[in-house]
Design a protein around this nucleic acid. Structure first.
Lengths: 329, 329
DNA sequence: TTGAAAGCGCTACCAG
DNA sequence: CTGGTAGCGCTTTCAA
């Protein structure tokens, strides 16, 4: 491997000059520059980012921590973030973890690797102590969280207004004459608990009956949708509308109902969440709460980038969802 | 930020000793070790991976280059790879790119960042010159490719036997009495071209009619499935069975046909590819070629890890798919 | 068992 | 415009 020493020797200049043509080309004489450039080119020189990083104390890398990239919602977010940061000259370290233990390990690893910033996709709180771990390992490294607020000076957050989303959903259902509505939560995360709270608030707002029977706890995706409907049927509850917390489980739940002879939306109205491809793959196509993932994740990326650039950014940024009405309601 | 110098000073030892308790604890006197450990703990010391990396010439990081993480197939692969490497003490840099230009940039970046290895998920060849770029930037860094073979000493590959997969699919359809079968390819990638070739071979093998009319070129996912069926109908071709190259487009294509009054599988048999959740979300559920993504990606990860460990591994490893028969055929 | 010192490859400051 | 040099924080001989 070529180092700037080798290049300097071959080009008959000092390493300072080589470094300069690499970083401040305009501060070196044209002829010298050309000569060095030629040697650089000839030898296929590649700078060592570790050495540079050690001096500059930055590897131009950010860490993205998320529960599970297999979730299409997170995958899209990761995609958008990677894309933006690539254009800004940063790489992204992918950290998949739902377990607190692994999350903490990653925090330490990211700290050791001196990442320039960290993004938490999906709510952070699998444990309230995560705040302490962030402070401990990340010191003052900028952190951007989504769907949860962390009380640390270097932390900023981008939030989706689920209160408004639930208002939209419940309001729409009430308008269609529904009164007995059940929410299917799809995980035990903080974010999921928050949606329940928002649902609660929306039901109260529209003066609709609301108690624990109006919430079913299941998991996300195909299995979650099937199980939720099974639980509903077994428990003997007879709602006229179901709100799911992700489109995949909404679609699965709908299929499960249809297999049982239900006609959607006549016998049951269904609303999904996320506005993903799944909502189009349903028959009837799903009414879904659009949480605008591309825009949302662009904002997340830009927020961290602005911080890295030293710009002042607000502590919390809010984005409102939209209701996309199709034929399942 | 604490460095080993600070720790050494506080513990009244030399930095060598601190370094030793960090890396070879058994080579230092128990009392000294305890003292240093205490100081380490007290001050929340975090080693600087850049400095260490510069000396050891490794950051314990691997790069994963894939076309598009939003594709569930790739997301699952990334998930599995990340998981394995995390357990082995490595981080993964996520590189999303279908464009050759960006692929080359990433090759350079990964080289600069001194990654220990690179994995290409999905066929590499958007341009045949990629081989030259790999040689140029990666020198002798180990590379593992999937679904494509690169002719370089440091390159190894893990392959899915699509020949066998197509044999399974076509054989199954022939058994069900189908003769006029169309393959819907879902991209222009090398991998997709390969599937066409395998389909061709399988059709010949079973002595079924085969010419260019038996292949439709579309894109992947929801849109691709819709478009493919539109193209089929417009062209007036009347196959009795369709093989798609991914489940999402198979499902979309099926829905498009059903919207048109087709009854599946009576009027048209459909086979998907990948055996993902999408195949379960279809009604009837999709017969699909299972390419065993979890096993496949585990093998990929293990192959690279073995290479990093200096073990001898074969140049190419083959894995056979399976046909999961459901109700769309 | 411990410490001194020589790098790893690069940047950035200071002289000239 | 150019070169010398002092680090960046750590690992790793080599002596003691």
């Amino acid at each position: 491997m070529m180092t700037i020493y080798d290049i300097a020797a071959k080009a008959q200049v000092s390493i300072s000059t080589v470094s300069r043509v690499l970083n401040n080309p305009d501060k070196v004489n044209e002829n010298t520059r050309k000569r060095v450039l030629a040697v650089l080119e000839m030898n296929n020189y590649t700078p060592n980012a570790l050495a540079r990083g050690l001096v500059r104390n930055s590897m131009r890398t950010v860490g993205v921590i998320m529960a599970d990239i297999r979730n299409i919602h997170f995958a899209q977010t990761a995609y958008t973030i990677e894309n933006h940061f690539f254009n800004w000259g940063f790489s992204v370290l992918l950290c998949n973890t739902s377990k607190l233990e692994k999350k903490r390990d990653y925090l330490r690893i990211l700290a050791e690797k001196k990442v320039d910033g960290v993004i938490f996709v999906g709510s952070v709180f699998s444990d309230i102590n995560i705040e302490r771990d962030i402070k401990r390992y990340l010191h003052s490294t900028p952190v951007v969280t989504t769907n949860s607020v962390i009380n640390l000076p270097q932390a900023h957050s981008v939030l989706m207004d689920h209160n408004y989303g639930m208002e939209l959903a419940v309001g729409h259902l009430k308008e269609r004459g529904h009164r007995n509505i059940i929410l299917v939560r799809n995980s035990r995360s903080y974010n999921s608990a928050n949606k329940v709270k928002c649902f609660h608030r929306a039901m109260k707002l529209f003066k609709l009956p609301m108690d624990d029977d109006h919430v079913i706890e299941s998991s996300s995706g195909y299995q979650g949708g099937i199980e939720a409907v099974d639980m509903m049927i077994e428990s003997g509850r007879k709602p006229s509308a179901l709100i799911f917390c992700d489109d995949a489980s909404a679609l699965a739940g709908m299929l499960r109902l249809q297999d049982d002879g239900y006609v959607i939306p006549r016998d049951m109205a269904i609303i999904g969440y996320d506005q993903s491809d799944y909502s189009l793959l349903a028959r009837p196509q799903l009414t879904s709460i659009d949480i605008k993932i591309p825009i949302f994740s662009s904002i997340v990326a830009n927020t961290l980038h602005d911080i890295l650039l030293g710009k002042e950014v607000g502590t919390a940024i809010n984005l409102s969802p939209e209701l996309v009405i199709r034929h399942s309601t």
